[in-house]
Write a protein that binds this DNA or RNA. Sequence first.
DNA 1: TGAATAGTGTCTATCAGACATTATCTC
DNA 2: GAGATAATGTCTGATAGACACTATTCA
Lengths: 312, 312
Amino acid sequence: MGFADASASERPYLPPAVAVSTVAFALRPPPGASTLDADAAADGEASAAPATLWIPLVRRTREPFRGRWALPGGPTRWNETLTDTALRSIRAAAGCTPGYLEQLYAFGGVERSADAARLVTIAYWAMLGEGDLDAAVGAGAAAAAEDRPSDSGAGSADGPWNRVTTAPSTSRRWDDPRDPPPLQPFDAASPDSEGNVAWCSADRLPELAFDHAGIIAYALARLRSKTEYAAVAHRFLGPTFTIGRLRAVHEAVLGAAVDPANFRRQMLARGVLVDTGERETGAAHRPARLYRFSNDAAPEPPDARPHPRRSA
Amino acid sequence: MGFADASASERPYLPPAVAVSTVAFALRPPPGASTLDADAAADGEASAAPATLWIPLVRRTREPFRGRWALPGGPTRWNETLTDTALRSIRAAAGCTPGYLEQLYAFGGVERSADAARLVTIAYWAMLGEGDLDAAVGAGAAAAAEDRPSDSGAGSADGPWNRVTTAPSTSRRWDDPRDPPPLQPFDAASPDSEGNVAWCSADRLPELAFDHAGIIAYALARLRSKTEYAAVAHRFLGPTFTIGRLRAVHEAVLGAAVDPANFRRQMLARGVLVDTGERETGAAHRPARLYRFSNDAAPEPPDARPHPRRSA
DNA sequence: TGAATAGTGTCTATCAGACATTATCTC
DNA sequence: GAGATAATGTCTGATAGACACTATTCA
């Protein structure tokens, strides 16, 4: 077709390719997933309080940056929205669907692609819940290295996007009103015994391809900022949780200790936590109340950034 | 070339076109610019305190939404960044260069284009200073209607972008460290006696093409939010200004009265205003100190959104 | 009983907002 | 002097943070 057949001399005049890169945060890797940092992984399993955030990465199988780790992503297909593409990429890399997804930034520099072919990358960041992680399918081990573009055009041989092939997730459906579910399942490809997905602590990243280290840093800043002023941290947890668990999430995200008493008051003052009558049992201390998040249907406009504290 | 020659049946498989739309706010239209709302325009010139924000719009000269007003913008060229495209679009519509420019959001819905051809639109918002407005060239009257794509490929005949042709701005250079200046001047096209640019109050918009009304509402929310927590309002003013002028800007942006005493204290407490020894003269009241903005070189990362109040 | 966390009470420094008061210009 | 805005002073209610204290479970 037109694009793929264009000669190199014509490429500068072609429209830029559009790709999506995703930063999917989780409190820990899915069970059985391969990790890049052995020490940190052991720590994460041993201690109850997660002290770091985890991100799935995929290994590039072609130039440029062949062999380097990179963010999951790929080009948009003609019939899916950018959000669809982000969701599909995350599902392929993590094996599950995120509980929260938000656009981060559109990078459109002319120098991003090593070739003359222009590339516009829209970055997304997401939060994976604990229940989602446990329901993840084929994360890591069953993932196959498939970096070849499929039939969906835009087949620039040196695109910086990174494909992951995994069976489509069978976990719970995407019921956030923000965006419709994707239109089609991910196309399975040649399975391989060795996966090209690895989970990595956001604190100890390897050398990454392209400017993906900067994108992760930016996503981390947004996650921290949003944790401070909006109620998003609960999306790392299951449907019910104690305030202590929620505080541990804040501490992991912000990287600092949080006063339990003040945190409790602030969270309850927000009025978004609902006390389920139940309690946490089995712990060697006074049992904690289990809360759930109240107004999941609080409709934030197109995307949830302007955070108008006062509605003027 | 490849893209333009693709038949209609091939289009769904081609990469999406990438365009930029811009929302350029100003306290008032440039002198001599044509406005859509006669009453509001008269008000704006008569009263000293601007009560509304103004935005340049361009009239579409082709389907879809032919004749409707729309946001300035157009497709990216192969050798310019998205920021370059936004700057060029604003210069063409407003005749001057904004003092502040920030990416708003990337819209990638599959239904945005009326045709099967996919379109990804990256929206930007900007602030035009008073000095820039006075130095604006050919705003409105000298603008020419040129909606034909030039040689830069991506020539989908029904693209929703909106071109404006005006002589390149001769006002001050783009010296914000955020991004490099554009690589090439805007290509002048056939001049026309009737302009296709009009300035419009953000409060009384006409029916707009596409989802541009939503984009403007979103940009307005961001401007208001950012005015509350960051020091950006001064970019609507000249290099020096009184605190009263700055307060008037806040009132115009937020649409509400602001206490002079508390506003003064808060602004001075931020430590970003520098007292030039000078005073404002000629006013029928006690002369006010003239301030300038101090740390214009405060380097905010890639783009300035995560506003980390505390650097952890 | 000891350890650990849940949950409550309380004090303080800080800050936003309301509003009074003085200062200084033009007409 | 009238009128207008600049600039300062002061009071109050709300809140973030620090921290003491009680409650309740398991080992």
